[in-house]
Amino acid sequence: MLFRVDPSSSQPLFEQLAAQVRMAVLSGDLPDGERLPAAREVGEALQVNQHTVLHAYQSLRDEGLIELRRGRGAVVTASSSERYQGLAQSLEAVRAEARRLGLPLSAVARMIDQPAEGAT
């Protein structure tokens, strides 16, 4: 898996990495049981501290998306693709509705990022 980070982004590096893994699982590019690259390898390739990569992996572990196994590293859990299936279907419905309304996805993303008025 090829990771990319944008050091100038306001999003922390570990969150950028975790988001890429989530998207790869959602798209099927990272199937259940797939082993992620070692944190040291990713850190060296991206020129970031390996602890940044470990932070991303630990965040994904806390979500139940990956397992961290001593000696085996980070492995995509058996139920990870099912975990996001409902979300993937909902997102496709949102994309379809945005197309119907003529809204660009960037506007939809901003709407998702902003809480609705009156929502708690």
Rank of each mutant, 00 (worst) to 15 (best):
41 E>N: 12
117 E>A: 05
26 L>F: 08
90 S>H: 11
77 T>K: 10
97 E>I: 10
58 Q>I: 02
52 T>G: 03
35 R>V: 11
109 A>E: 11
113 D>V: 04
43 G>N: 04
40 R>M: 08
38 A>Y: 07
13 L>N: 04
59 S>I: 03
3 F>C: 06
106 S>R: 11
32 D>G: 13
38 A>T: 07
106 S>E: 13
67 E>H: 15
29 D>M: 09
88 A>W: 06
69 R>M: 12
47 Q>R: 13
96 A>K: 12
22 R>T: 11
114 Q>N: 11
100 R>G: 09
49 N>Y: 08
13 L>Q: 03
93 A>H: 09
25 V>F: 01
74 A>Q: 02
81 S>Y: 08
38 A>I: 04
50 Q>F: 06
60 L>R: 00
86 G>F: 07
24 A>C: 03
80 S>E: 05
54 L>A: 08
84 Y>W: 12
36 L>A: 03
46 L>G: 01
113 D>S: 11
39 A>P: 00
86 G>K: 10
90 S>F: 09
102 G>Y: 01
39 A>K: 02
30 L>W: 00
118 G>Q: 00
55 H>S: 14
42 V>A: 01
46 L>I: 00
114 Q>S: 11
65 L>I: 13
74 A>N: 01
47 Q>M: 11
12 P>K: 06
51 H>R: 15
120 T>E: 13
21 V>I: 08
85 Q>W: 10
91 L>C: 12
103 L>E: 05
6 D>N: 15
58 Q>W: 07
64 G>W: 03
105 L>W: 10
46 L>S: 02
117 E>K: 04
37 P>L: 01
105 L>T: 08
119 A>Q: 00
17 L>Y: 01
68 L>F: 01
72 R>Q: 13
12 P>A: 11
14 F>C: 12
70 R>N: 12
